[in-house]
């Protein structure tokens, strides 16, 4: 067995499409909320850290972000 052959051409094409869809839909979000999603994924930021960074109350940050995630989901499923 060869370890980790990496994604094949078909998978790469699909990844490409997913990336375009994600970045297109992220662009529809308010910039500061898109930034929160990005930081949560790439930097492992928690709600606490996002709240501290923005100065917005934790519950408010969470409400905003969940609405944004639903908006994102709706955009991606189009």
């Amino acid at each position: 067995m060869i370890a980790d052959p990496g994604p094949g051409p078909a998978q790469q094409l699909q990844s490409r499409a997913e990336a375009e869809a994600l970045f297109g839909c992220m662009a529809e979000l308010p910039p500061e909320r898109a930034e929160m999603v990005r930081r949560a994924y790439l930097e492992g930021a928690t709600y606490n850290e996002l709240s501290d960074a923005t100065g917005v109350k934790l519950n408010t940050v969470r409400t905003w972000l969940r609405r944004s995630l639903m908006q994102l989901r709706e955009c991606l499923s189009r």
């Binding site: 969470r62 972000l65 969940r66 995630l69 639903m70 994102l72």
Partner: peptide
């Protein structure tokens, strides 16, 4: 807002 569907995204984001 969002129910389980939003929670799924939070889960993947580690939130």
């Amino acid at each position: 807002p969002g129910g389980w569907e939003a929670a799924a995204a939070e889960y993947v984001l580690g939130l």
